[in-house]
Structures are given as C-alpha cells and as structure tokens.
Design a protein around this nucleic acid. Sequence first.
RNA 1: GCCGAUGUAGCUCAGUUGGUCAGAGCAGCUGAUUUGUAAUCUGCAGGUCGGGGGUUCGAAUCCCUUCAUCGGCUCCA
Length: 646
Amino acid sequence: MITITFPDGSSREFRRGISSLEIAERISPRLAKEVYAATVNGEIYDLTRPINDNSSLKLHKWEDEEAKHAFWHSSAHLMAEALEALYPGIKFGIGPAIENGFYYDVDPGDGRTITDADLPVIENKMKEIAARNLSYNRREVSKTEAITVFSEKGDEYKTELISELEDGTISLYTQGGFTDLCRGPHLPSTEPIKAIKLLSVAGAYWRGNEKRKMLTRIYGITYPKQKMLDEYLILLEEAKRRDHRKIGKELELFTFSPRVGMGLPLWLPKGSDIRQNLISFLTAILRRRGYKIVTTPHIGNVELYKLSGHYEKYGADSFQPMSTPQEGEQFMLKPMNCPHHCEIYNSTQHSYRDLPLRMAEFGTVYRYEQSGELHGLTRVRSFTQDDAHHFCRPDQLREEFKSIIDLILYIFKILNFNDFTAQISLRDPGNKQKYIGSDENWEKAEEDIIVAAREKNLKTTVVPGEAAFYGPKLDFMVRDAIGRKWQLGTIQVDYNLPERFDLTYNGSDNQKHQPVMIHRTVFGSLERFVAVLIENTAGKFPLWLAPEKAVVLPISEKFNDYAANVLDILNNSDICTLIDDRNEKIGKKIRDNELKRIPYLLVIGEKEVENGTVAVRKQGEGDRGSMKVEEFVSFIRREIENEIAY
RNA sequence: GCCGAUGUAGCUCAGUUGGUCAGAGCAGCUGAUUUGUAAUCUGCAGGUCGGGGGUUCGAAUCCCUUCAUCGGCUCCA
C-alpha cells in the first residue's frame, strides 16, 4: 500500500500502482469526469499513469492551467492524427498547448499547402477520430528506439528533436494509429474533446530560426463542451470590435496612406487632440517631479550614432543615412533620443550637487520596422516617445529607479490601467555578443533593477534574453484586443552611454566621475499608448481625454438660435462642443452622437429655451435631467478635475 | 523580410461554374417633414471591381506581376 496526501493535508491509503484517475473515481465518479491531469509529487502526470510510491497528489479540473494544458496538448495530437490521415507522409515539428488552445507546426511536403479552406475538413476528421474514444498510451523508450521510430517514418524534424534529448527521459504517446514524441501529460482518451475549432494557418520557422525552413502552423482550440467553445468565439468577436484600427477609423482618430508610406501614422484632428491631452497631462506631472523638458532635432549626424553604438547594432536595418551637399557628411533620422540628450548633458559641466538631472522630451523617432511587423498604431515606423533620461550618481541610482516605478504606477492608476504585467528583461547569458558593455556593468545594472523592483514590492516575471543591447530593463506590458502583448513603460539602467559619451560630473572630492543613466518611458510611445487606450475603453474615452466633450442637439430648427448660443458659451469656456442641427429627429441625432462616443449630449427644446437650461444626457447612461448652462460648465470642469486629480 | 489569405462606391458587404452583374445598406447631396431621448420619408449622385500585364470572341470572376492590408513567424534600440 502507498499513502497519498491531498492538497488539504488529508491522506489515504491506496494500493501500489493505482492511477490518479482511479483515485478520483474512488473519491467520486463525478470528480473523475471533471479531472484532466494530476500533479504527483510536483510532477505533472497522466491520469492513467501508475503511482508507485507515497506521494502528494493534486487533481486538476478544467480551471487549472495544468488541465487545460493536457487537454489542448492532447488536442494537438488529435489534430496531428487527422492531418496524417488526410495528408499521408506529412511531417511534424512541434505541437504544444498554448495560452488559448494549441498549434502544430507541420511540413505537408512536396509542394502541398494547407490553407484556411482546408481547416473545416481537418476539423471534421478530428471530430470523427475523437468520437472513437481512442486512449492515449504512454511508452518510455530509449533514445535509439525513438530515433528508429521516426527515421523509419522519415520525419527528420522529430529525429532532430530526439537527438538533442537525453537518453532515459524520452517518452512516446500513441492514440489510434498515431505516435508522437511527447513529454505529456495527456488525457486518458479523446473522449472529452467534444468541441473543436481550427482558427488559422500561418507560417512559422522551424525552431524559430529564420534561416531554416518555414513550416505550416495550424492554430486551434478545443473544449469539453460546445457551449464553452461558442462563448470563446463570441469573446473573440467582441475583442475584434474593440480593435483600435477599426475604432480609429470609425472615430476619425488616425489614418495611413500608402503614398506617405506604410507605418507612418497620420493623426487626424481628433486623434491629435487626444495626443495633446496626454502630453499636457504628463508634462504637468513631470514638472512637479523635477523634470526639465528639452527639444531635439529629428535627425543627427551619423557619427553620433556610431558613437552611441546604435549604428553598429541597427544601422543596416534603419532608414539609411542621407547625404548632404557637403562631401562625406551624413545624417540619420533619429531612432533614439538618448544620444541627443547625452550631448545636452555634455553642453555644461555638472556638480554632484546637481544630480540627479531628469531630462524629458516628447521625441519623435524613426525606425525601419520590418514590413510584416507593422500593426496599426502599436508597431509603426514613426512614433513619439514620452522619453526621459535620468543622469545620477551611482549612489542615487536605486532611489532614482524606484521613483520611476512610482511614477509609472501613479500614472497607470490615474488612467485606471490595472491590467498590466511587470517584466524584468535580462541579458541572454548564452549569447553575450548580442550586447555591448562590460560584464561588470551588466551585472551591476541587473542587480540594481532586481533589487529596486523587489524593494517596491512589484510583482515581476524575469525573462532572460529580452534586455536592450546596452542594458537590462524593467518593462510594463499590456495586452491588446487580440491578446498580443505590447511593451508600454520601460525603465532601463545604462552604464554604457555615459562611458561612450564620456559624461562626467565633479564629485565632492573635486574629481571627475561618471554618472549612471536611466532611460525611461511611461506611455512607451503616444501611438502605442493611444492604441491601448482605444482598446481598453472601446473608444469611450474619459471626459478629460475625449477630443469632443459635448454636442448640442436642438429638437427642431426653431431652437437652433438658442442652441448656437449654448454652443458659444461652452466653446468659450474651453469645453470643446459640437452642434448637430441637421434636419433629423431627436432620436436619430442621439443615436448618431452616441455612436460617435461623445460624452455628453445636450438636448434643447422649448422647455430649455424658456428656462435657460440644457437637458443633459450622458453617453451610455441616458437622461440626467436639466441644468442651467453655467451649471453644466462647472459640472464638466469638476468632472475633468476629478478624473485627473493628482 | 518569410508563409498563408484578402483587396468591389467614403464605410460595411452581395456578385453562383468567365457571358445585360457592376449591386445593396449606411454615409453624402435633393426635396418634404419641424420633430422630446438610439435609425422619418422622397429623389439623386458615387466605382476603369487596388495598379500593371496576359489568356479569351468576352474577365470583378482565370494566370502572371506589383502595391497595400490581415493572421502568424522572425525582429523590436
């Protein structure tokens, strides 16, 4: 007999070799139907895998990531079996479970392609196979045996994977006629996979290496119930409706023109107003926090970027240097503000007493992003960073860093931005040649960030290999409507630029010392931030950000004069207001202006003219009753003040 | 940059196997109506079907090429 200990601390005796599934059945048959995987002594197990020793056991129901993982991983194998049936000789790369569903990378072979149109066919095949209730059987094999299995099959991708595995750790899973290299765990059988949807096909480089073959990646998702799948698909549809590219067009915030150039956003008047509101808001906060605002040109001598290291790292992939009538002279569109800021720092001498120096700029930069990477406003070739550089003494670094974490959290809070993650991005220890600077400086900088984040009690994830080429960073990430992750705010410690630009200050010992630099943004770029704001609010911006605060709606032509009068009063009070004096019924005017997401609709008819009032209707909420025009002015002002109270 | 898909009026989309198929709704302009909280009615105008080339008696429809967009991959200072 063995003793199994459950998460609540209780324990029970079972016979040696019992499976988690059998244990679940002993507890309750209903539970057995709801579990998909188990954790045995901290290791993920198939439900059917025998347990041979005293163990702790946690059974995973759908709510647990482990359960979904097993479910979707098994679904990937199911899809592979369907593909093998439909495309004999097809070869398989990797096919993991992901956050929402699974994918499999496949090589259909000899000129065959798989397109969206083929997905329903594969889907049906999967349903047909799943209905056979095939069991997933685990088999541990030697490396030689594993290689034999897949080389006989002619699957060079699998043999490549196996060749890198250690002998003794290799397992195969078979369901029906399909066998795959896999660590597991899997479902006991295909039976629970009831609802299946293949979502898209895409190209993906084998092993993520752009020099290697491009395989076909098929994305899909499955659920134990059709209703769950339907709900997920509805969620996807709703997310699409919040897409900033769609809303940006509808609300006339920005546009692109192939004549101007791809990835070069054209901000329309309303979008510009939002930008401007964000800039004013942030500038006021920065001034209070001791930042000095600077302005630098959009271009710089190519020598500047050679000195900073940017040219060597990115020169070939940038907008190329432009020449001038002066022989040998070349300029580049600036990809970064920091070299310019270093030269501002160098324009005067600095005393240790003057540090930290905080230099901010809403600086527009230009980067030649790959054409396939461009995406609405989140990935563009011209964008305005809310950039700043802190020059400080080494002994000030940690406090300075922490003050920036405060600033970012403070602003996110005012903007009601709760759904972000903080990520510490470190150097890839296995690929140090990607970076510039000494090991010593890197170690110092990484330590600084980790400690500062810890001291601020910031919950972070640590990702090696994501650092900038000149230093590690703390990134604030958010997701967009379709689930993609984007970096907004970032804080980066940099010992390299001060060295390259020979930045100095006079210490109390009257010697020259080198300051440390911190690069930071809060929004990241105005473009990306506005995109995220659009998706978070679905275009219903808070009043202070809204480009147009109110619209006056006369019920008929008879009230146009009074309406025009109200319009003047509001606009003269700096409350950007429109008038809708079209020859339409009030219901139509309300509908159209609600769809334009105008925060306040002011209905004007006979009563309002008589009483000198406006009938206030709040966007999305409906009638708020009447108030005097002056009352409405102070009401709006108060609301704006409350929104950005800091 | 790579793989796949898409591209029809300002917007959202119909256009069956190539043959009165160049259409609809919304938006725009007309005229009527003078309206009380999410769509009043009438009429009109709008497109060399992304651009270029080809196949064909005939191309929005088939082929090639180019541009752009979308979904991924790679990249992201």
